[in-house]
């Protein structure tokens, strides 16, 4: 899995609340059987008109934000479906960090599976960072230190230790769990006796 340590760059401001996964990557792009190639379709309906032409004033279509690795967005980012295509498309576009006041649970989880750092800040901090992003002030994100810096602002953010480690080290989650295979088998043996109807294997 991809690692994340630190990041510097311009952040794209997207001051819309409840940005859902249908907005991030509409359904017609979920027909792929690959993880890659979705960046061009990120925020499709906000980025392209119905003829497929770029909508010039959408933030990710304007320079320098079209090169942003960081997104600053309104409350409850990533709500809606479980589609991992949402973080896949962000990643493929080049976005490695999203800052908001809150994230939907499934999207938040999916980010960590793909080397993307979602950062939760307070509403006041989000206002400051949104202004800084709009003014094209360079952001500096440091995961080991858990800080976001932009101009005069320096913000400490919280992150669960295991998630931090996973991003820093780019760990293979399945590989780690398979290390507990004996425990899983022991669990199954115990439940076969206790709840046999669950193992009446189809």
């Amino acid at each position: 899995m991809d690692k994340f340590n630190s990041l510097k760059g311009i952040a794209a401001p997207l001051p819309i609340v409840n940005i859902d996964t249908d907005m991030i990557i509409p359904k017609q792009f979920l027909k792929t059987i690959k993880r890659t190639g979705l960046g061009v379709s990120l925020f499709y309906e906000m980025r392209y008109d119905s003829d497929g032409n770029l909508i010039k004033d959408f933030v990710l279509n304007t320079s320098p934000f079209d090169q942003s690795k960081i997104l600053v967005a309104g409350d409850n980012f990533g709500c809606g479906s479980s589609r991992e295509h949402a973080p896949w498309s962000l990643k493929d576009f080049g976005i490695k960090c999203v800052i908001s006041t809150s994230f939907a649970d499934i999207f938040y989880n999916n980010c960590f599976q793909n080397g993307i750092l979602p950062i939760v800040v307070s509403p006041e901090q989000l206002d400051q960072l949104m202004t800084a992003a709009t003014n094209q002030i360079e952001f500096s994100i440091d995961l080991p230190e858990q800080t976001v810096k932009a101009g005069n602002h320096s913000i400490n953010f919280e992150i669960e230790e295991f998630r931090k480690d996973r991003l820093l080290q780019g760990l293979d989650d399945i590989g780690i769990t398979l290390g507990y295979k004996d425990k899983i088998s022991a669990y199954e043996e115990e439940k076969k006796n206790k709840k046999p109807w669950l193992f009446k294997d189809n």
């Binding site: 993880r35 479906s81 479980s82 991992e84 973080p87 989880n109 999916n110 599976q113 793909n114 399945i174």
Partner: peptide, 13 residues
């Protein structure tokens, strides 16, 4: 609901 990486995790473990 879970993401696709978790689907793979559940299939494998």
């Amino acid at each position: 609901g879970i993401g696709t990486s978790e689907v793979e995790h559940v299939l494998a473990t």
